[in-house]
Design a protein around this nucleic acid. Sequence first.
DNA 1: TTCCATATTGTAAACATTATAATGTAGTAT
DNA 2: ATACTACATTATAATGTTTACAATATGGAA
Lengths: 139, 139
Amino acid sequence: MDVSADALMDIFKNRGIRSSYTRMRIMQYLMVNRNHSTADEIYGSLVEEIPTLSRTTVYNSLHAFVEAGLARVVTIEDNEARYDADISDHGHFKCDSCGRIYDFTVDVDCIQPKALEKFRINQRDVYFKGICLGCLDNK
Amino acid sequence: MDVSADALMDIFKNRGIRSSYTRMRIMQYLMVNRNHSTADEIYGSLVEEIPTLSRTTVYNSLHAFVEAGLARVVTIEDNEARYDADISDHGHFKCDSCGRIYDFTVDVDCIQPKALEKFRINQRDVYFKGICLGCLDNK
DNA sequence: TTCCATATTGTAAACATTATAATGTAGTAT
DNA sequence: ATACTACATTATAATGTTTACAATATGGAA
């Protein structure tokens, strides 16, 4: 699944954020590597190709994407923020053994807490943890 | 809601972790202040009463509690871990305006993702964000 | 009371993230 | 096309949270 530069420029323009080569490469990375990368993983991969890349730029860009609704932060682990370009409603499962993060579909509408009836809910996150099938089989 | 030292010593003994004054005070703090405190908030409160208290001890104790199943980590925000002595199944709502964290009851059994059918699920977290009623009324 | 495993402490280090100020660039207006 | 302006990028330094480590103190069993 590749993403053309033209398509990205359109997406950025629609969301009101400026296009740049770096920003496009970061967004492409998120869209191609759907592995819920950390900012540092993105930096480490892209700096080989863009030697002048700065960590701050990665953080700035990711924040801009989140603000613009183009990506979500996944805080399933307490010591690092991960980023996900899939903004459709879905949950995340983290395997405590191999560390992989799996997506799964969730009907968030089945969660309608009475305590929040009059609250304005902007974001719903569902995080599960345990052992994935592959790691269970390896024992 | 107060918690006697005797009751706490029993709880610790049942879970196989050693009792100590510091540890009991940290657990009491979590059980009385059900406000999903950060490690630093707990340290800041207790150090007035236990001047020799060390941050490391707070972290160690909290980790021990989580390991023993006496507390849960709430990672609703990406830059800080919060701790919750309420280990019953419930979700967390964070108000983006006032920052308060609300509990709400969730029927987690209504979430049965097919993709995870053969996975072992050990922990389920539901995090919502938005604006709470109080903050909505203040506008 | 003695002893050992473990808890506590202080310091320093690791780690992720943010602040700042100078420089570079995209995109609009001229 | 050119110039201009707002914004993106960069390097460095600082912040904030959490962990590593080694010395000391303590809980609980023998």
